[in-house]
Amino acid sequence: MRALTYHKSNDQFVLAQLDKPAPSADEVLVKVVAAGLNPVDAKIHKWCGGARDMDDTWVPGLDVSGIIEAVGANVEGWSMGDAVLYHGNMFKPCGGFAQYALADADALIPHPDVDPVIAAATPCAGWTAWRALTHKLQIENRKSLLVLGGSGGTGGFAIQIARYFGVETILATCSEQNADYVTSLGATRTIDYNWEDVLSTVYENTARQGVEVAFDTVGGDNDILAANCLGFEGHMVELVGVVRPPIYNGAFLKGLSFHQLSLGSAYRGGTKAKADLVKAGAAFSKLLEAGEITVPRLQQVSLEEAGDALKTIRNQRTVGKIVLKM
């Protein structure tokens, strides 16, 4: 089969011809129709040391839309020919940047009634945004939200989810050139991080109270900014780094709460964690099917172009989503 492999010795994505993998007892073999490209795929050089036995046949690619071609001996509830969507295990070698991939049967969801390329753009970014806003921040009960990184995949989905739940004030950082795009997703006020004072702008747009909840999708020191923008007993989700309450202004006196989120940790968290992953995917996909959530900026690439696209994701800010169409 044709595949895009990763060589950790020289940090290169390399096209290769590999044997078709065979599923274990609890896995399914999926014929890949489309696979989403995500920062976690692009930044494999940062986490490849945690993958056991990674060699030059390692195929990345976590977000896969495809058709089941074979099922393992213990698999129940799935059959050959079923259309499925999933977010895969980053520490397993047979990912979606190939004609065929392997997936844990208990991590699959039925394919939503949308184009496979659209579906493949959603698991990592969309399901993460869903879990952050609904499971961690209880967005259905909130009136104000700050999203740091509004033009990215996860940030853009978060804005749309907040809009769906009727959040009145949705503030989002982005560059001036992406302001119209972020506004179209549902942001009530965009903040240009290049020249605007984010903290002051947040307080100006929340009657000097700060936001109820914040979501940092950027990383670096943006967790400090997100935390400092919170109002009394506000909540923040940090997606990229680790929260650092001691350095946030008034974290104790304001009674702030902080959350971590790693979608892929479901594969290390046991049965309940994986079930939560599946539930998030199913819930998000219902909104996708209903048109409440869209993928408005979508770039489609071939397998031959995917390696360069991953390096682009790694080296600069990406607006919207990039998807490999097999």
Rank of each mutant, 00 (worst) to 15 (best):
A290G: 04
A306E: 04
I170K: 01
G234M: 09
G234K: 10
A125G: 09
V242N: 03
L102K: 07
A105P: 03
L171H: 05
D56G: 08
P60S: 10
I313G: 05
D63L: 07
A290L: 10
G149V: 13
A282K: 10
S184T: 05
S257Q: 15
I224K: 12
T201N: 03
E233A: 15
G241L: 11
D11K: 14
A16R: 14
L18D: 10
A125F: 05
V114W: 10
G153M: 00
T271W: 07
C94V: 01
C94M: 02
L185Q: 04
Q299E: 10
L145S: 10
D192H: 09
L298W: 10
G96L: 05
I224R: 11
G152E: 06
M1A: 06
L133A: 15
G95W: 07
N194W: 09
S24K: 13
N228Q: 07
D106K: 11
D221N: 12
L185I: 02
P39V: 13
N74R: 14
P60D: 08
L85E: 07
H235C: 15
E233H: 14
Q99K: 11
A105E: 01
H111L: 10
F157N: 13
Y86D: 00
S184K: 03
T128L: 11
Q300K: 13
P93H: 11
R2Q: 14
T57I: 09
H7S: 05
P123A: 06
T128P: 11
T128C: 11
G126Q: 12
P296K: 03
L37S: 05
G220H: 09
Y181Q: 08
L298K: 09
V240A: 14
L29C: 00
G153P: 02
E140P: 14
T217V: 13
A83K: 12
V243D: 14
K286Y: 05
G255P: 03
G241A: 15
L15M: 13
S144C: 11
N222A: 04
K8I: 08
T57P: 01
L133Y: 15
W195S: 13
P123W: 08
T188E: 05
L133H: 15
Y6L: 04
G264V: 09
E238T: 13
E238M: 07
L137K: 15
G166H: 08
G219Y: 06
I109H: 00
M236L: 14
F13K: 00
G264P: 06
W130Y: 15
N178W: 04
V84W: 03
C124K: 03
H45L: 08
E305G: 01
T169Y: 02
T294D: 07
V30Y: 04
